[in-house]
Design a protein around this nucleic acid. Sequence first.
DNA 1: TATGAATGAGCCTTCATTCAT
DNA 2: GATGAATGAAGGCTCATTCAT
Lengths: 206, 206, 206, 206
Amino acid sequence: MPHREAAQGAIAQRRRDEIVGAALEIFAERGYHATGIADIAAVLNIGHGTFYRYFRNKRDIVSHVLVHVLERLNDTIRDENAAAADTLDECRAQFARVAEKLFAVFTEEPALGRFFFAEALGVDRDFTRALTAGLNTFGGVTQAYLANGVAKGFLRADLDVGVTARSINGMILAAAIDAFDSRDPEKVRTRWLAAAPDLILRGIKA
Amino acid sequence: MPHREAAQGAIAQRRRDEIVGAALEIFAERGYHATGIADIAAVLNIGHGTFYRYFRNKRDIVSHVLVHVLERLNDTIRDENAAAADTLDECRAQFARVAEKLFAVFTEEPALGRFFFAEALGVDRDFTRALTAGLNTFGGVTQAYLANGVAKGFLRADLDVGVTARSINGMILAAAIDAFDSRDPEKVRTRWLAAAPDLILRGIKA
Amino acid sequence: MPHREAAQGAIAQRRRDEIVGAALEIFAERGYHATGIADIAAVLNIGHGTFYRYFRNKRDIVSHVLVHVLERLNDTIRDENAAAADTLDECRAQFARVAEKLFAVFTEEPALGRFFFAEALGVDRDFTRALTAGLNTFGGVTQAYLANGVAKGFLRADLDVGVTARSINGMILAAAIDAFDSRDPEKVRTRWLAAAPDLILRGIKA
Amino acid sequence: MPHREAAQGAIAQRRRDEIVGAALEIFAERGYHATGIADIAAVLNIGHGTFYRYFRNKRDIVSHVLVHVLERLNDTIRDENAAAADTLDECRAQFARVAEKLFAVFTEEPALGRFFFAEALGVDRDFTRALTAGLNTFGGVTQAYLANGVAKGFLRADLDVGVTARSINGMILAAAIDAFDSRDPEKVRTRWLAAAPDLILRGIKA
DNA sequence: TATGAATGAGCCTTCATTCAT
DNA sequence: GATGAATGAAGGCTCATTCAT
């Protein structure tokens, strides 16, 4: 029940999705604070009063954008089953697949990453909390993979799966930032996909 | 020469530092956009006109806050010499020292981390660039440590030092975020200090 | 296209005209610098935010006020045809008509003159330039009358029409200032209308 | 007694004059409202607090500047004696002398004219009144010349000396404005000095 | 006497939000 | 449902003026 007065039909839902999409693009482009409701409406060629028929206010839309982004990321890794890997090689293959997919989604929809990593943090306190909560969710997913490996014995028994999961997510974040900054994202992708799995699995020592 | 018309004496410099400190606190607390110049002035019990004797405008102060934060972090790791480690154990000890120091600085001045990781990204485009540039500097430092290890043979010869350096910084970032969110930062500290060095050096595989 | 985002309809144009009228009154009353946007809005019983829907900023409105004033003055003398007079008497009659009209317009709309002669010069450099350009236009009109008389032989052949035109406009200015300052503008009007034509014509006639 | 606390000595008076001079220059240059007290002080290399030891406030200085300008103009025409001319030719010569002197003073001190005609009107209501009063004084002087001529019979008996005096001053004003706007003030001067006396005398002579 | 650091009234401008049409 | 005109809270910034040193 998004907004008391909002339309409930399928067309209305489509309109809502359009607004979320446009808002994501433009928030990612200019940042939350530099973006006006009128800017979002202008992109969609709708009156900016119309916006308020679908979302309560500016704070409301950015929440919905975050949900949208988190869902897109979730979709990306949903297919993988944390318990599917039984050996280190299968685990490595799984890592590679997830990494590929993440790179793909961030490459295809750059706004996703830019919003998530760059523009979303300045919204406000509550939003930062929500964002962190979303990150923790992904931390939980990663943790499940690790726990599976430890249980099946192909990962170190003494592994702190919580800390390790967060570390891996920090690496993903670093990779994403690297890709955003780079003029040649493809090259960045190749380097990370080549180096990261070994780094995680084997560490850096000789 | 920070502000053309600002006083240049030692007292003036102290006042400037006070303003930077207060701004850091309050930016970290409420975020850049939610903070007014009047808020900063109120904390210091000065008229808000006084602020403008020391900084050109709101954008100016946040730049100075960033510089301050980066300098604080630099101070933290300055003492270590990237080329000092000759063995894996020395390297591990070096890692531990730096990690301790970073945890200490973020624990003693929580605003530092909150500003750096949470509120600083929403300022504007140029600021994000400056922030990223600052992060890259730290990436370069980390990379120097890794290159030393590779050269001396106690780190993998096939290590991609660039990607690895960024990864490690991503882990530091994850640790910092974890600490901010936690109600028991001490516990977080203990866990990370116990787990991270092994994670980096050995990886996760059994 | 006065303001990109402003409404373009007839009602909007009326609103724009109302604002220009109110601004003229109040600029003439208090002067440009002593007038706030809020003052203009208050006169019209509109929110001061509304002002910005119709004019870009304070500088914008004063430019429009100037254009309005110049147009009003132009309207006043438009009906006369500089080439219509063929004799000195016709010329004298023409002078008298224009003088009557000018007195009428300044008497009916005192703000017009007060803005034009008293408050408009302190706006800024560019505005003064625009104002002077407007004055020069009127100088050109006056000059056309004189040139007509010289060509037809009822004005002195050796007349410097440029200087004379400016002189006459200076006299008009003096008359207007005299009228503003006087407590009895009607008396001023009578005196000037009686004395000025003779003064001019004896000076310029062949 | 300019300012209660101001110094009364000769050095103090010199300082006061310096400030008036600097203020005249900079008011003429940028206009009253665009000029800050600090700007005036900066020109003189004095602290801007010092300004307030000599003048009550910003409004005070501009009044003194006006007095200074009016005195300068008065000095220019003081030497002439309105009653000295006994014939039309002597009157013409007198006019020419005064016109020369006025052109000279405005050419030598352009700030004088620019302040008087261009920047002084936007100050505020009271100031405009004072300025008009000053103009009226000059109107009185001009009127004395005319009355002398009428009394001695070389100017028209039916001359409205009041209106005519103001007209002449209006012409002077027009000439001054012309000179300010021109890139070649010397040429302007030559044209006006050639044309104006004839224009006036033919209009006013018996 | 000179200074300039401190102050805050005041003003312009933006933009999220409302609501009559 | 859609629109966009109207609104005013909010905040950045300037600068005349004061006063302690």
